[in-house]
Every structure is written in C-alpha cells, then in structure tokens.
Simulated assay, not measured.
Amino acid sequence: MTNAQLASIQWGLFLSVVFLAPQLLFRQLTWRSAIITGYASMLFAATFLPMQTVPPRQSVQPVPFQWVADTLRDGQIAFDQMTLNVLLFVPLGAMLMFWGKRSLGQSALIGYGVSLVIEGSQLVWANRIFDVDDLITNTTGTALGWLGALAAVKVFTRAKATAVPQRSLAGVR
C-alpha cells in the first residue's frame, strides 16, 4: 500500500468521526446512518484525498484494461490499485441489495453512475486522471458486493430454515 493510499484511509477515518459525532451527540445515530456515513467518508477520502498539487502528465486514460499492461510494467502497485478500486465499491453493491432493494442490473448501473461522477469530479477538481479502468473496476465491485450480499442472505435463510426449533419450557413442570 502506498503512502497516498494510507493517507486516504486516515482522512476517511477522520471524516467518519467528524460526520458521525454530531449524529451521536444529537442521538440521531442508527446502524444504517453510521454505515452510510462511514462508507461515504471513506469513498470521498479514497477518491479525492490527498489532493494532488501537480497536474498529472495525462488527464484521461481511455484504454480498457490498461491496468494489466501497467501491472506487467510497474509490478504490484497497479494490481493493488485495481483491487482496491473493486473493494471500494463492494459495500455500495451490498447496501443497494439490502436497503435499496435494487436488482443486480440496477445496482451495477448505479455503481457505474457513481463512478462516472467521481471520475469526472477528479478530472475537474482533484488534478487526477479520468481512468476508464476505474469505471470498469468500480462497477465490477458494485456487482460483486450485490452478489455477495445475496449469497449471505441465501446462506442465512437456509441456515435459519434448517435450524432445530427450540422447545419451550413454559408448559413443562
């Protein structure tokens, strides 16, 4: 993990505390709001912080799956970046499946849209590269999160259905 990625994680944790504290203080904090606030803070920090002061030498990377050539050329860093992009959007897919009651296609489309907004914003405000690979990996992460949440629901439902019912001791003397 690079220093910039570690700094992004630290910023995300800091922002999570900053945004969760008022909810806690005013007793408005729920599990759902805590998860959404924490995720949104981490997503913002990972995609925008720390801000780049020097513009990149290339502003748009339009070649799909360029990360493969970058991994062969640069080594593990490009592969790790791709993996982190996938993992960053897994929670979004899970939240859309659990709370949004969205289909896989709808969730992937929402993940793509969120990623497109982030990539465009990075290009305009954060001196970062608009990378088509990020659109692909973020959309994939959203779909994998949705599928993982569905699998968890199915496993939980199956385990609950096959559990041995507990006998009540109320009528036993």
Rank of each mutant, 00 (worst) to 15 (best):
N3W: 14
N3D: 11
L6C: 03
L6H: 06
A7H: 04
Q10F: 14
L13K: 05
F14W: 11
V17R: 08
V17P: 07
V18E: 04
F19M: 08
L20W: 09
A21M: 14
P22D: 07
Q23D: 05
L24M: 10
L25W: 15
R27Q: 15
Q28V: 08
Q28F: 05
Q28L: 11
L29T: 05
W31N: 13
T37K: 04
A45M: 01
A46E: 01
L49C: 12
Q52F: 11
T53H: 10
V54Q: 10
R57N: 02
Q58M: 13
V60G: 04
Q61G: 03
P62K: 00
P64M: 05
F65T: 00
Q66K: 06
W67N: 03
D70Y: 04
D74C: 01
A78T: 08
F79I: 01
F79G: 08
F79S: 08
F79A: 15
D80P: 01
T83R: 15
V86S: 09
F89C: 03
F89L: 02
V90K: 02
P91W: 03
G93C: 04
A94Y: 03
M95C: 07
L96T: 06
L96N: 06
M97N: 12
F98I: 14
F98Q: 12
F98A: 13
W99N: 09
W99V: 08
K101V: 11
K101L: 10
S103T: 15
S103I: 12
S103K: 01
S103P: 08
G105S: 12
G105K: 13
Q106A: 14
G111M: 03
Y112D: 03
L116Q: 03
L116P: 01
I118M: 01
E119I: 00
L123P: 02
I129K: 02
F130V: 01
D131K: 06
V132E: 02
D133Q: 05
D133G: 04
D134G: 02
L135M: 11
L135S: 00
L135K: 11
T140Q: 05
L144F: 11
L144W: 06
L150A: 15
A151C: 10
K154G: 02
F156P: 00
T157F: 06
R158F: 14
A161I: 05
A161P: 11
A161R: 15
V164Y: 02
P165I: 09
P165E: 12
R167V: 12
R167Q: 13
S168E: 14
R173E: 15
